[in-house]
Design a binder for these strands. Structure first.
Lengths: 140, 140
DNA sequence: CTATGTGCAAAATGTTTGCAGACGA
DNA sequence: TCGTCTGCAAACATTTTGCACATAG
């Protein structure tokens, strides 16, 4: 948490309560919230904050490497303060998005580079399915 | 191409010139076009076709399993008439999207299922980088 | 002939932008 | 104090919807 403060300053951005609050929401959760989810969560504490501020802050956090952007096939983007490369899985019923740690995905980039002559800069692995909770609901 | 005709009819959809034309565009290309790209390509031949028709047709083609939807991190979706599961790679400079055949991605789903208790229904692997052509341009 | 499809325009959704006043350094 | 940031409203881009007319079967 002190990290974001000095990182913002180092990169020439000002440290504001809004920016800290938005990052704190992301850092605390594993729910991979969208901009609107972040906005809603902050409403009680920061009733005057606008969605535009959320988007502008996300842009900065992405730029300084404090979050990564996810595209799980919804209309909106989701954000993850865990910037390490790891796969994600979305429940197509309740739309929750979970991390998949413990899945080995390194090594792909090299073979892709050899196969295509692309210079690889990133990767995202997404899985889709039905989460345990939604499976139970449907069984009833 | 005769396949789509009978498939549409079997599923209770009517066969129209627009639907055939849209599918033909998708079936012929490996460029993974967006709705607007499809629309633009059909403009000369079908000047009265509307974007709404493109979207409605895409919805049907997805439903009957003739296309898959891609999310390569852009604001719009892209579509692929190759419905087999295969990874994709996007050039972050020119935004072209290429197929990655010859990359083994099966086997993941099983270990994900075991690890998470999700019932897996699909997966998408995306790579990001710079394509050979754009690398050359930048070197100059 | 009838039900479904098309094309238009309007609406809905998610995101971005411009700008006046607020505030961090 | 000065330059950046916030919050608002308007603009934008993509996709969806409602409806009158057209058309496949």
């Amino acid at each position: 948490m002190e990290y974001i403060t000095s990182l913002l300053r180092d990169k020439g951005f000002k440290v504001t309560p809004q920016r800290l609050a938005i990052y704190k929401v992301l850092a605390r959760t594993k729910a991979h919230p969208s901009a609107e989810m972040i906005f809603n969560e902050l409403q009680p504490l920061y009733p005057t904050m606008s969605l535009a501020t959320v988007y502008k802050t996300i842009e900065i956090l992405k730029e300084i490497g404090l979050l990564q952007v996810l595209n799980v096939g919804e209309d909106s983007f989701r954000y993850d303060a865990n910037v390490e490369n790891h796969p994600h899985i979305r429940c197509m019923v309740c739309n929750r998005v979970d991390d998949l740690d413990n899945i080995e995905t390194a090594g792909f980039a090299d073979s892709v580079a050899k196969l295509t002559s692309y210079r690889i800069t990133g990767q995202q692995f997404y899985f889709y399915g039905i989460c345990p909770a939604c499976q139970k609901k449907n069984d009833k």
